[in-house]
Every structure is written in structure tokens, then in C-alpha cells.
Design a protein around this nucleic acid. Sequence first.
RNA 1: GCCGAGGUGGUGGAGUUGGUAGACACGCGAGACUUAAAAUCUCGUGACCUUACGGUCGCGCGGGUUCGAAUCCCGCCCUCGGCACCA
Length: 812
Amino acid sequence: MKNFDHTKVEKKWQQQWESEDIYATDDSSKKPKVFVLDMFPYPSGEGLHVGHPKGYIATDVYSRFKKMSGFEVLHPMGWDAFGLPAENFAIKNRVHPRVAVEKNIQNFKRQLSHLGFNYDWSREINTTDPEYYKWTQWIFLQLFKKGLAFESHEPINWCPSCQTGLANEDLESDGTCERCGSIVEKKPMRQWVLRITDYADRLLDDLSLLDRWPEHIKEAQRNWIGKSEGSEIEFTVKGSQERIKVFTTRPDTIFGVTYMVLAPEHELVKKLAYSNTEEVEEYVVKSQRRSEMDRLDETKEKTGVLLRGVSVVNPANGEEIPLFVADYVLAHYGTGAIMAVPAHDERDYAFARKFALPVRKVITHSGNARGVDSIPLLRWLANNLWYTRTVITTNPGTLINSGEFNGMESEKAKEVITEKVGGTIASTYRLNDWVFSRQRYWGEPIPIVHCKTCGAVPVPEDQLPVTLPDVENYEPTGTGESPLAHIDEWVHTSCPTCGKEGKRETNTMPQWAGSSWYYLRFIDPNNNDAFIDPEKERQWMPVNVYVGGDHAVRHLIYARFWHKVLFDLGYVSTEEPFTRLEFLGFILAEDGRKMSKRWGNVINPDEIVKTNGADAMRVYEMFMSPFENTTAWSTDGLVGSQRFLERVWKLSQNTTTESGPATVLELHKTIKKVGEDIEGFKFNTAIAQLMILLNVATEHGISGEDFKLFTQILAPFAPHLSEEIWRETFAENTSIHLTAWPEYNESQLVKETVTIAVQINGKKRGSVEVATNADEPTVVSAVRAEEKLSRWIVGEPKRVVYILNKLINIVV
RNA sequence: GCCGAGGUGGUGGAGUUGGUAGACACGCGAGACUUAAAAUCUCGUGACCUUACGGUCGCGCGGGUUCGAAUCCCGCCCUCGGCACCA
């Protein structure tokens, strides 16, 4: 018997498949369509480590299975190649980003091809290709025309090291830059912003449509959007026309307001008249200088300044209360101003304690608010005991000390009080609009021309793409302008509207732009005349299975946002782009840490393919743990998978004339289970079942015909070995990957006899073998016939519980 | 603090419409083959008690429901992830 030479066999079939073009997708096919999508990679200079292909292996297995099951499958691959990492790599290595990216893509493609993936490479896309980003720019113009893209001068996150503005999504939770770890500053500058907040409610509500998404991803998105519902209420400034609008989730506590606070950046801080201007200015400047990080770092120690001479009128009771500026109130959340209720908010309480402000309890949980109110002494005791114990409650309850509303429940009072003080029911979001411009070179140019008379003018669609020009220096300028600003001949152009002198927008789009719509490009990858062919779009969308990790909020929120805009404009036919999301767990290094050059624990798939084979790596990565688990790589485990494949090969050369009955039974069981498990992304148990079948077949014998069925259901996991057995050992003419998935025979799944577990008083004491579907008396007498079991039955059974073909419990 | 996911042998993990816990694999131990080693094959492998037959205990902890609980209910502990001075 010849040995299995994985290197030779894998290379042979990879070439054969390519020359036979067996993975081409046919748009005109009449078969039902399935769109299986990977999160396409950013082609880094470091190449792949063994963790990267895990998701690609899964989609490969899944799409092969769907194809064999009679579906026309779209399973494409491409490159997300714009963005800061590519640019920084290029600067460091003194190569033009385009050249570096080209080289990296070639390397990635080589690495992927060695794993035997079934991508239809004729649909390969690259976000940095002008024919691709033409349409990224086109989408921007649609957003602009719809009023969803606008210029803003608000302070934004500025990374001093990357020298560019960043969206909130690009920051770590401690306020540092996710790329370089620098502390991010607030810097006022002109930038393009997308009005994603207009879609906040839909992005939130439509999560309920996504019942095939993991709960933790939906939860992360809900947290990110961070909707809270409450009221907006206006307070008037005494002796002035100015009003302070606050957002509160607790209008029911308005009688407990003892002071008000403005964020340092609030416009009224400059407008109002107060006596201590210097002190206030100093505080405002100081708090602006403090980075976001410092602000968060302060462990609840509150700071602030009173605006001397200003008093604000509470619309609920006409009370005059003081006004503060304090940085615990955030300018970009709500209205940037709050009504402070120290008795029922921990932050307000901390501030009130520090500044010796009154605390007035207006919510009780005792349930006899009336009694407390009617006995002054008791009320005094209740308030003061509670006050000195410094226990505050943030829970809803019954109103007290609230005039006509005493005795009302919080929920009811929220509504009634809001109405009474002339407020409105309102929602506010943690989500901010998407800062969309970057002051860097390697991104899509924003297709806008600035004209002195016409303002910001969109580049006409027939002039797209606005191509990224070559520059001498693509390093950041440090002035807050993109390197593109230095290329005079590119910047200077004529205004598309009036024809006079105009200047091109020199900011570029963020990394996330190209990936926010790429799935659509795969459907119609070479269309230069239209965004997408509507008929093809309807055929393939939505994506049936989307597989990837990491991008739980950013990419998935941005893509959903753009998709909804395109839906509103009629370019796509579905509300949501991805119906089913499978989130993959990462592969850690053998030492349990992340694979990283820094730790020297990176395993290169090229090495594994060479020494153990692509099939062994594929099987191992699918078998190592449930798909969504993060698990450490184990070379021993890999060798185990390799051994399994070698035993498959051995048995393929040693088939018998007939299969043993146990083999037939197990074969049909396996066909059923493997199909179901692949559909459910439970690859580890699918492979376990294939191993069980191999063990049974080795022991009881398997015929050539039955072995071919086994080979077919193994094929999605180990395409090379399966093809070798299919075409060489069994001399088939066409590829195993074009064959139909075997059907299992329901009648072959039923055994003649079954083993029934025997419990006496709920304790397992043994088992009996009886005919399938035997009735209860038969099983009982079988148990009685067995000395070892019957000796436990003392006296008459009180009760017998019998579960057909499974278990009998005799209670005595 | 709020929210989400999870906790099963030495390890990765099976098993969750309540019904034989530990499938499959790794590791480990013993044996076969070999001059020897590797590879391969066979057997064993949750813990404890027992010469054996067999028994007792076991799915993070403590209760409960049930003939029967890893699975359901109540109360805790821990790990991972998201958000967090968000009004």
C-alpha cells in the first residue's frame, strides 16, 4: 500500500481544481442561492498565523456542504487594504502603500491557496482599486445629497501620534487610541461627519429582526447605541431670557432638585453674567486641557465652580437654585446640562456633599407617604435619619415632598410632571455621529470640491472616481491637514457648479468606509456603469451566513447603517445585510497568550501545511473546540487530526466486499448528524462522529460503495484527501466536490435491539437488552430475570417509570 | 455599578424539549511489534473504598422541585466580554 503524501496530493488537486474551474459561481443558475461571507482581511505585512484561517475554513466547509446539497453558492474573498496600518507599515518600510499592499495581497493569497479554499477568485475585490472606491465615493455622495454627510467644527478626538482625527469607535474604553495607545486629545477642527444618529433607533430596533445573531453581539450594539428614555425640561435663569434645557430620565424627582450643572463646554457658560468670571474661565480652560483619560481616571472626586449671582428657577415649584459648572457633566451627552437631584443620584449626591448643598428626599419606598407627610416629627426623623446614614436611593418609588404629586408612583409621575412643567418626552443616545474624515494619505479621497461662492459641492457622479494621486511624501503633515493638501495640481480644480476656481477636499475616508458595503460588490464585481444590478442584488441578498470575529460594534454598525441608507434609497431590497452571524473564537498560542511577534509564539500556517498537511490543519481547527470558543493551539491535537486522516487513507485501501451491519447503521447515523452539525456550525461534533464511523468501519468492515459515501461527507473538511480517494482509489471522473450530498435512510437508523438503563429508586444499577419498542411489562420481566438487578428490588414496586427505548426506573 | 455569555476528568470538550454524565480527541499508563528507538496496533484511564464481586461520591457553592436534575426554580461565588461620572 502506498503512503499518503499530503504535499504532493494537495498540490495536484489544487492545480486540477483551478484548471477545471469547479468553484465558479453561476448567477444564472436556477438553484436556490446561498451567500456565504467571510469578514475580508486587511492584508498585513506579517502574513497569516494559524488563527486567521479558522473562519475561512468554516465558511469553506459550510459552502462546500451547501453546494453538495443543491445550492448555488456565492463564496468570495477580497482585501480591505486602505487605512492607517497599511500606511504606517509603508512609512516605516519606505515603500509606497500601493506597492506594499500589492505585495501583501500576493502573500496572503498564496497562503490561503495552500489551504485549498473554494473561493471564486474571479470575484476578488480590493478596496484600494479605483474601480472599487469609485463606488465608495458614490455612496458618500448619496449620503451627502440626503443630508447625512455634513461638515462640522466641533472638537473631535485627535491622536497626536497618528496625527489624525478619530471616531469615538476608534478609541479604547480608557480614551486611548486603539492603534498606538496614545492619549487622545480633543481638538477643534473641520471634519466630515455622518449622521448615524438619525438611524440610531432603527439600528437598535432592528436588532430584534436578527434572531440568528449571537446575543452578546446584539448586546454590545445595544450598549454602544446606549439609548435612554426620559424628558427634556427647561429651567429659566432668573432675570434673564436664557433657558437651560436639561435631559433627565427622572422627571419624577424634580421637586428634589437643589442645584443645576452645566458642562464646561456649554454655550451658556460664556453667555451668562456672573461675578466670578475669572474663576470660572480658569476652571473651563483647565477642564478642557485635561484629556478624556484624566477625566475618567478621577475616581469620583468631583470638581466644579459656582456661577456667583446666577439663580435658576425650578419650573415645578418656582424655587430658586444655584448653578454650577462641573466636568462631571458631559457636553456631548444629553443637552450638556443637568438638574441635580442629590437625594436620588449618586453623582449628584457626591457633588452635593463636597459643596455642602442641600439634599431633599422626594421618593420613598415605605409605601405610606401620606403618613410621613402628615406627622411633622416623623417626617423630620425619617428625612434626617436617612440623611445621616447617607443612603440614597436611585430606585423608583412613591413621591413625597412633591406638592400636589405626593403619593403618586414614579412611573406615573414622570409623565404627569413632564407635562405640567411644559417638558417633552425625549430620548438620548450614547452613540455620536460618525467622524468620517482622516487627515492621512492612504484612504479614499472625499469627492467634494470647495468653492468660495457655492460652498461644498459634490463631484458629479460621472467624474468618479476621484483618484488618489501619487505624492512624494505620504507621511502626516503634522498641521492637521492631509498630505494631499501639498499637491497643488490635484487640489486646484474648477467648481463643478459655477466653473470658477475650486479646491478639492483633501481629507480621506476612514478605514471602515470600504468595508461598509463590500459584500454588495461581490455580487456584481465588475459593474462600472451602475452601483449594482438590481436583479442580481435581489437574487443574492441578504448574506445568509456572515462569519468573523472582533468587529462586534464598529464594522457591523457601520455596515448596517450604510445598508439601511441604501435600502431607503432603493438600491438594496433588505432592511438588514446579514441575516445570520457566526462569531468565531480566536486561536491562542500554545502558551495561552495571544499569538504575537512580541512573544515569539506565532505559528505560521505555511509550516503546518508543509509538515502536517492542509487537510490536517483544517480538520484540527474545526475539531479543536466549538467554533465560537477561544482556544489555545495544541500541536499534539493537530497530530491527532493528522492521524485520523491517515487512518482514513489506510482504510480506503482496505475496503471489504460487504459492510458489517454495525457499519451500515453508523454510516446512516453519521450522514444525518454531519449534515445537521455543519448546518448548525457544530463542526467539532461533526468530526467526532466521522471519527466514530471510522472506528466502527475499521472494526466491522466497510464496502467500497459505503466508503465512498463516507468520503463524500468527509470532503468539506478534508477536500484534498477526499478527492484523492474519490478520483484515484475509486477512479471517479468528476470531482467529489461536485457530487450530491448523500442521503441517509431513516429505516437504517433503527436497531433491532436497544439497551435500556435500569434504575432502582432513581439510582442506576445496570442495563438490559430488549427488542426495540418493547413494552413496559417486557422490560420489567427482563429486569427481574437478571439476578444482579432483581436483588435490588425489595418488596413490591410502588411505581414504575418507563421511557421507551431508553430507561426504566423502578421505585420500591 | 448595569448588561451579556459561561463554569463538566490531567487537557480541548460531548451530553441542556429533565432520562445510562464524561462521546470524540489529546495526554498518561501497560502490552505487542523492533536489536533499539520512532511510527503503528491492542488494552486501560473521573475520584475514593475493595484482593475480588461490588459499592460510595461526583458537572462552581448552598438549598428546592421531581420517580429521576449538568439540564428546571431560589440564593450565592468565580471567569470572560460589552458599557460605564451617560444624568
